[in-house]
Amino acid sequence: MPVYEYHPDELARLSVLRRANGLDLEQVRERGQGAQERVRLAHIAPAEPRNPSELGIASCQSLEWARIAHVMAEQQMPIYSPDQDPRVARREEQRSHRMATEAASEEPGSAGLPVEVLRCRVYRITGGTANSPAGEQPLIRHIFAASGAAAFDQARAMFSRPGSTHHEGEYRITSVEQVLPEPGEFP
């Protein structure tokens, strides 16, 4: 069966769309300013060596809030509705096309077969060393995985490899938090 997987940037945009639905322009601008602050904080935090990253997620969401505010002002929408946003329909069309293309390239002769949609999420893994001094910045990584347990296992494997930031037994995961999509919702 062909498989489709949402990309983290798609999850970030869809998350913003869900939160923006039903908000007025002032509320959208407020949320956009909050997203810009999140980008600023992500810039000054230690850089993550791979994607998805806090900076990438925050940037994507900030751009989406700004785009929605622009669309609302341009179309004079009193309340935001994704149904009235032409870009939402275009993105969904592109996503459907990508789904069909990826499914067809994955399994020849699979055109027309149902596509399994993988329900992966983005998890923020926080951790440090057992001997971390007070005030030391925690180590944060974002993992794209199907469950919190799978994200935990990926993080543990990533940091126990030879040559990693932390050696076997030194690294301790302190939290695993689902950040995209927000817990309880899925596209």
Rank of each mutant, 00 (worst) to 15 (best):
His7Ile: 06
His7Leu: 15
Pro8Asn: 02
Glu10Met: 07
Arg13His: 00
Ser15Tyr: 00
Val16Asp: 02
Arg18Cys: 00
Arg18Met: 03
Arg29Lys: 13
Arg29Ile: 10
Glu30Trp: 07
Ala35Glu: 05
Val39Leu: 11
Pro46Gly: 10
Pro49Lys: 05
Asn51Lys: 01
Ser53Met: 02
Gly56Ala: 05
Ala58Ile: 02
Gln61Met: 15
Leu63Trp: 01
Leu63Ala: 07
Glu64Pro: 01
Ala66Asp: 07
Ala66Val: 02
His70Arg: 10
Met72Tyr: 12
Ala73Asp: 15
Pro82Val: 09
Pro82Cys: 08
Gln94Trp: 03
Ser96Thr: 13
Arg98Glu: 15
Ala100Pro: 07
Thr101His: 12
Thr101Ile: 10
Ala103Asn: 02
Ala104Thr: 11
Glu107Thr: 06
Pro108Asp: 03
Ala111Asn: 09
Leu113Ala: 13
Leu118Trp: 01
Arg119Met: 14
Cys120Pro: 01
Cys120Trp: 11
Arg121Asp: 04
Val122Phe: 08
Tyr123Glu: 04
Asn131Phe: 06
Pro133Gly: 07
Pro133Ile: 06
Pro138Lys: 02
Ile140Tyr: 02
Arg141Ser: 07
His142Cys: 06
His142Asn: 08
Ser147Gly: 06
Ala151Ile: 03
Ala151Trp: 04
Phe152Gln: 08
Asp153Lys: 11
Gln154Asn: 06
Pro162Leu: 03
Gly163Cys: 01
Ser164Gly: 13
His167Leu: 15
Gly169His: 09
Arg172Thr: 10
Glu177Met: 09
Pro181Ser: 08
Pro181Phe: 05
Pro183Tyr: 14
